[in-house]
Every structure is written in structure tokens, then in C-alpha cells.
Write a protein that binds this DNA or RNA. Structure first.
Length: 743
DNA sequence: TTAGGGTTAG
């Protein structure tokens, strides 16, 4: 990427400030680069940007365009025109283009650099990735998107941003040097004393809403949506503070932003403002209010607004149908039809989504009604149906829906691949992939599904995954967040931890999931030190670990016998990160304490858990009782296990071993009799060996004493020699430990 | 300017 311009030096913009989205180096020198990538640098504020942008639009596909040092004006509203025109330029050209906009107020220049990055998707759709390089602007800290983010151009955020940016500029100019941190003020708060459900003072019940994601923690898309929406509402607040009255469009945009925040407060305040501003009967705003409440988890309020609305259009009904958790979507759909409201494709998509895997008949019924109305054949409805049937484990029906689609786009192929992958039908998924590549270009979703299917299919060799990895590299999809996570997981589960690590390091944007993937990978490999070091690095990034991260760390502590550290981690999860432990966390603690021989503490944890811990915790404690020869606690655990799962052999076998080791043969015989009477059979355990020669893409499965493989003899002798090597190594390390202890 | 879903990850 090349940025052309003059006047940058004295503004202090360095390559650091102008991070390249594509991670290539940034040159701030004057020069021309007429290759395929075109960069446009604009120094504003502009006298009349529109006029200047016109030649830009004409020339942009030919070479570098440079608009520079235009006279500064105080008519800031023109900046809005400038922004709009800028966006038009991007859309018109349809080229890969990077634009840097530098706002340059007259006195004491302040800089906001805003890089707009556009990528065209086959000329069909345009998405903008809008990244703001933030500079410390003295009194004014402009917290936009701290990292590169992707936003749809048509998202409300941009429009609001474009409309209100001039106000920000005006604010900067008028308040320079005042030290006011005006963007942190909650302008919506000015109405809080009077805000409420309606002017009659009726307030909605305060149901807790899901907390907003940490802007620094959530994966980039979510974070950007959250940050952008917060910013949009800040602008809205600023707009009101500066005395500009919002119109219906502004309210709609602000409500859409509030819907992204998952926080009921802005929704309530905006609803109140809508009513006070006389927009109470505006159907578009009413619909937006319903969605805003619904997204914030306030389904009661969403329903109340719906009920109090005298006029409802199809969007109003669809808005309510999309409220989660849905209150009987099928019933709502029936009422809608009784009231002669015509359902459309959106209605069906929402309805199908509401049909979960418990509702087979309802799902089929919805399909039938959609078919009769001629809506089921619409592409988006068909894709929803494929996913619905895949969830219902009816892949034959999913396939029928897929086959009936006339114009198959990549998303429909992906829905089918994913359906097969999720239902463990790897071969079908691979067959669909083979056809898919003849018709369209696979994308990150395709590979995400395929890789996860390979990872979860035990009998498939790593070589299979590697061939897809090669495909991914060729298409340049390896940097995608989802693909990199799938690769980390694939390599870790197939024993190649170094490849896992490489996939992690190559991931340009590391989300919590990326971090958790690599921590889990090392945890599975028993690399305690790596796990702890990565965990510390993760915390230093400011990303908050979640339940699964903690589980991976606790498992690592458990495997390594680091009980005190494990307890510390568990406590920090509860006290510092305020994460309510799942039963898996308690079970892990029980396992950890049990393995370390701290059986009483383990049993305490078992009782401490606010929920029943399930069989795995009991099994692990029973196993610990066997190792540490505590028959009394062991029999308590075994009894509890036999009550929960009377036909599972594990408890009988373990308890029988405890008795055998203590020489209590009568008890052993009693247990065995009990097993026979209840028809309990010991399950056969299998192991898989990946030969990795490339001749076969499938792994080889063995059970104990299994001689059916043609190379059984060779394999057994190799296993024997490996076993001997392991025991020598173990003796060596035991001796080392002994020497260290005696010294 | 309001409604939705489909593909991916620990």
C-alpha cells in the first residue's frame, strides 16, 4: 500500500499511525504507484469536496489520485457531503482501494485519520472495513475502532457517523483547549429523570439483560459492532447536546445502534425520547423499538410495545417473531395469518429458526405452509430449511431442499456441507465439497466445516487435513479467524502441536477463541508451562478469559498435579473474573484434588458444587480412591455411580479392583455377581494409529488383544519396543527425581 | 431509516 501526500510530516503521521490493513509496509513518501492498488489521500477540511471528488471518481481507476491542501472552511456541514462523496467514490470504482482522510482544522491541527478499506465481492456486494487510526488528540480522545474491523457499508453506524461527523469537528474547533472529555458524558442521561415506559409513568420491569461484550475481548466482528454502536449513540447524544433535534431517521439509526449493545437502558431511554418527541405513532420507529428491546433481552417490553401498537405491518409481526426466546412462534404465526397479515420470506426464516431440534412436526408443518404459499423456494428460506433439517438430523430432507435450489450460491453449498459435517457424515461432506469446487469458490465457512468434520472423525488421518490446509493456503484463507482456529484444533487433536502453534502465530487477529484454542491444544498435550505462559499473555492483552479458557487451564493444572495453582486459578475465575463455575470446573477440581491424594478436599468440592456433578466427577474420585487405596470413600462413590448408571461397567470394575487390591475377594465376587445379574458388560476400548505414510487417509483401529490387522505381528512388536522405551525413560526420570530429592 | 436467516471456531 502506498500513501501519497504532502503535509503529513508536520502533522506527525507516521507509518505506525497508518497501519496497513493488509499488513504490508506503509510508505509515506511522495511517489506514484500506478499498479493495481490505488490509494487516495485527502487532506480536509475542504472548501468544496464534492467538486474535488468528481475528478477523483473519474481518475481513480487509472492511477493515484491526490487531493491536497484544500482551503479550510468553517462550514463543517460540507464535511458530511465530503464523507458521502467519498463513500460514493469507493462504491463507484469497485476497486480495492485504501483511503486515508486527514481532518485538518485551521487552528492547532488535530488529526483524525480514518482509513477506509474496501473490498468488492465479485462486484455484487460491497463491504467496507473501516479502521480508524487513533491519535491522542489532547483533550479529545476519539475512541473509535481500536482494531481493524469489518462493517457492512449499509450499516447504520456509517450513516450516523457520516451525518454527525461534522458536529464532532465543530465541537473540536469550538472547544479546543477546554479539557472537556465530552464524548464520555452520557447525554442520554439528561432525560433519565423523566425517562420511562410511557408518559403515564409506567415503567417496564427491570429484567437483567445480557452484559455487553468487552470491547477488547470479543471477536473482532462483535467488538466492532459494539464499539461502533456505542460511538453512534455518543454521536446521537452529542447531536442533542448541540441543540440539533433528531428526526425520525436519526431515531431509527440510534435505535438500531442501541439494538447492537444488548443493553436495555439505551433502548428504554430512546423509547422514551421517541414518545416525547411525538414519534409514538411512527410505525418504522415502533418496529425499531421492538427490535431494540428484543435484542437487549427485554422480551416483555418488546411484547408490550407490540400489544400497544394500534397499527401493525408485516415488519412489526416479523420483529416480534424474532424475539428470543420466542413465545410460541407458531402460535404467533397463526394469529398473524388470522389477522390477514401476509407472511413473507423473513417471516419464514424467523419461524424456521424458532423450530429447534425438538420440534420435528412443527418444522415439517412450517415447510409445508411455506411450500403452499410459494415462499419455501426462496433462496434464503431454502437455506434455512437445509439448516433446520440438518439440526433435526434429517439429511435426506436437507439434500432434497438443496437439490431443488435453482441458483446455488456458496452459502447453500456451505449449509449442506455443514449439515453433513455436524451429523458426522464426513464422506458426504467431502463429496459435496468435490462438486462444490466445480461450481463456485469455497470460502472460509466451507473449510471451517470440512476441517471440523475431519477433526471430529476419529478414523481420518491427519494427511486429509493437510491436503485441505494446502488448499486453504492457496486461496489465502489461512489468516481467517475461523479457519485458523479450525487448524489449531485439527493439528492439536492429531498430535501436531507445533503446527497448531504455527497456525496460532499466523492468525493476524487473535480473538478469545483463538487464544483458548491454543491454550486447550497445549492443555490436551499436557504442556503445563506453555498453558500458563499463554494464559498470562492472554490476560496481558486485556482479553477476558471465559469459562472454556479456565477449563483448559484447570485441566492443565490437573494433569500436571499443580493443585495449589489450580485452586488459585479457580478462585481467580470466581473472584477476579466473576465467572460462575460450570459443573465441569467443579468436576475438574474434584479430579485434580483426587489425583493428588487430597481425597477429603475433593469430596468437599463435590458437595460444594451447587449442582449435581454428573458421573465423570464421581468416576474420577472413585479412580482416585483406587489409586490412594481409600475403600471406604470408594464404595460411597461406586454406590452413587451405580445408582445413576446401573448398567455402566466403569464403577463395578473400579470398585472390584479396589477390593481385589485389598484382598477382599468376597466383595469382588459379590460385585461380579451383581454385574452379571444386571447385565452389565465391560465395553471394549479402542485405540487408533495414524500410519501417516500417505497411502491411506484412514487410521487403523485396534482393541486389546486384537490380531485382525494384516500387519498385526509387526505392530505388536513395535508397540512392545515402544512400551519398553517408555518404561526405561520413566525409570530414568524416577531416578532423577529420587537423586534430586535425596540431594 | 424499521423485520430475518443461512455457512465457521474453543
Amino acid at each position: 500500500m502506498q500513501i501519497i501526500g504532502t503535509g503529513f510530516d508536520h502533522l506527525g503521521i507516521s507509518s505506525k499511525n497508518c497501519r496497513s490493513h493488509s499488513a504490508s509496509s506503509v510508505h509515506l513518501s511522495r511517489g506514484t504507484n500506478s499498479d493495481s492498488i490505488v490509494d487516495l489521500v485527502i487532506t480536509v477540511c475542504l472548501e468544496d469536496f464534492q467538486e474535488m471528488a468528481a475528478p477523483a471518481r473519474r481518475n481513480i481507476s487509472n492511477s493515484v489520485v491526490h487531493i491536497h491542501e484544500l482551503p479550510i472552511t468553517r462550514e463543517f456541514h460540507r464535511a458530511a457531503i465530503a464523507n458521502n462523496t467519498l463513500m460514493e467514490v469507493i462504491l463507484d470504482t469497485g476497486e480495492y482501494i485504501s483511503i486515508l482522510v486527514v481532518y485538518f482544522p485551521e487552528e492547532d491541527p488535530q488529526v483524525i485519520s480514518c482509513r477506509t478499506h474496501q473490498c468488492g465481492l465479485g462486484g455484487m456486494k460491497y463491504h467496507l472495513s473501516l479502521a480508524h487510526d487513533i491519535r491522542d488528540l489532547g483533550f479529545f480522545r476519539f475512541e473509535l475502532c481500536p482494531c481493524s474491523t469489518t462493517l457492512a457499508f449499509t450499516s447504520n453506524y456509517e450513516f450516523l457517523h457520516i451525518h454527525l461527523l461534522p458536529l464532532v469537528l465543530q465541537r473540536i474547533a469550538s472547544r479546543q483547549g477546554t479539557g472537556a472529555d465530552f464524548l464520555t458524558t452520557d447525554f442520554l442521561e439528561t432525560d433519565s429523570s423523566t425517562s420511562g415506559w410511557t408518559d403515564s409513568g409506567r415503567r417496564p420491569p427491570s429484567t437483567p439483560a445480557p452484559s455487553p461484550p468487552h470491547s477488547s475481548t470479543a471477536e473482532a466482528g462483535r467488538a466492532s459492532s459494539f464499539t461502533a454502536s456505542t460511538e453512534a449513540l455518543d454521536f446521537f447524544a452529542l447531536m442533542r447536546r448541540t441543540g440539533v433535534h433528531p428526526d425520525g431517521v436519526t431515531f431509527t439509526v440510534a435505535l438500531a445502534a442501541s439494538a447492537n449493545l444488548l443493553d436495555p437502558e439505551p433502548a428504554r431511554k430512546l423509547h422514551s425520547l421517541v414518545l416525547k418527541s411525538g414519534f409514538g405513532s411512527d410505525i418504522i420507529l415502533t418496529n425499531a423499538v421492538i427490535t431494540s428491546y428484543a435484542r437487549a433481552g427485554q422480551s416483555v417490553e418488546a411484547h408490550m410495545v407490540f400489544n400497544e401498537t394500534p397499527f401493525r405491518d408485516s415488519v412489526t409481526w416479523n420483529s416480534l417473531l424474532c424475539v428470543r426466546p420466542d413465545h410460541n412462534a407458531i402460535h404467533l404465526f397463526n394469529v398473524m395469518r388470522l389477522q390477514d397479515v401476509q407472511p413473507n420470506d423473513v417471516t419464514f426464516v424467523a419461524l424456521i429458526f424458532a423450530v429447534n431440534d425438538q420440534l420435528l412436526r412443527e418444522g415439517q408443518m412450517v415447510h409445508g405452509v411455506g411450500f403452499k404459499l410459494g415462499i419455501a423456494e426462496e433462496l434464503n428460506v431454502s437455506i434455512s430449511l437445509i439448516t433446520m433439517y440438518a439440526k433435526l438430523k434429517l439429511m435426506v430432507d436437507a439434500r432434497k431442499v438443496f437439490d431443488a435450489i435453482h441458483c446455488k450460491e456458496i452459502v447453500s453449498w456451505n449449509a449442506l456441507v455443514s449439515g453433513y459435517a455436524q451429523n458426522g457424515q464426513l464422506e458426504d461432506a467431502l463429496a459435496v465439497f468435490s462438486s462444490l469446487i466445480l461450481h463456485c469458490m469455497p470460502n472460509q465457512y466451507t473449510f471451517g466445516s470440512i476441517l471440523s468434520a475431519i477433526t471430529t472423525t476419529d478414523i481420518v488421518s491427519l494427511a486429509y487435513g493437510q491436503s485441505f490446509h494446502a488448499h486453504i493456503l492457496k486461496l489465502g484463507l489461512n489468516a481467517n479467524a475461523y479457519v485458523s482456529v479450525a487448524l489449531i484444533d485439527l493439528y492439536a487433536k492429531r498430535g501436531s502441536i507445533d503446527e497448531s502453534r504455527r497456525a496460532f502465530e499466523e492468525a493476524p487477529l487473535k480473538s478469545l477463541i483463538t487464544w483458548t484454542s491454543i491454550i486447550s491444544a497445549h492443555s490436551k498435550h499436557g504442556n503445563y508451562e506453555e498453558v500458563m505462559s499463554l494464559f498470562e499473555s492472554l490476560k496481558r492483552t486485556g482479553i477476558h478469559p471465559d469459562h472454556i479458557t479456565f477449563l483448559a487451564v484447570l485441566v492443565a493444572c490437573c494433569c500436571k498435579g499443580k493443585v495449589d495453582m489450580g485452586r488459585k486459578v479457580f478462585e481467580s475465575m470466581v473472584d477476579e473474573f466473576e465467572i460462575e463455575p460450570w459443573q465441569e470446573h467443579y468436576a475438574c477440581m474434584v479430579d485434580m484434588l483426587g489425583k493428588a491424594g487430597r481425597l477429603e478436599e475433593a469430596e468437599e468440592f463435590l458437595q460444594l458444587a451447587p449442582m449435581p456433578l454428573g458421573i465423570s466427577a464421581l468416576q474420577s474420585l472413585l479412580g482416585a480412591c483406587r489409586v490412594h487405596r481409600n475403600a471406604e470413600m470408594g464404595s460411597r462413590m461406586a454406590e452413587a455411580l451405580m445408582k445413576v448408571e446401573p448398567t455402566e461397567s466403569g464403577a463395578y470394575v473400579l470398585m472390584s479392583n479396589i477390593y481385589a487390591e485389598k484382598g477382599e475377594w468376597d466383595n469382588v465376587a459379590k460385585l461380579r455377581r451383581g454385574m452379571r445379574q444386571r447385565g452389565v458388560r465391560k465395553e471394549i476400548g479402542f485405540s487408533w494409529v495414524d500410519v501417516g505414510s500417505g497411502e491411506s487417509l484412514h487410521m487403523h483401529r485396534f482393541s486389546s488383544g486384537d490380531n485382525t490387522h494384516p500387519l498385526a505381528e509387526e505392530i505388536h512388536s513395535m508397540a512392545e519396543s515402544l512400551g519398553m522405551e517408555i518404561s526405561y525413560k520413566k525409570e530414568d526420570s524416577d531416578m532423577g527425581f529420587y537423586l534430586a530429592a535425596t540431594n
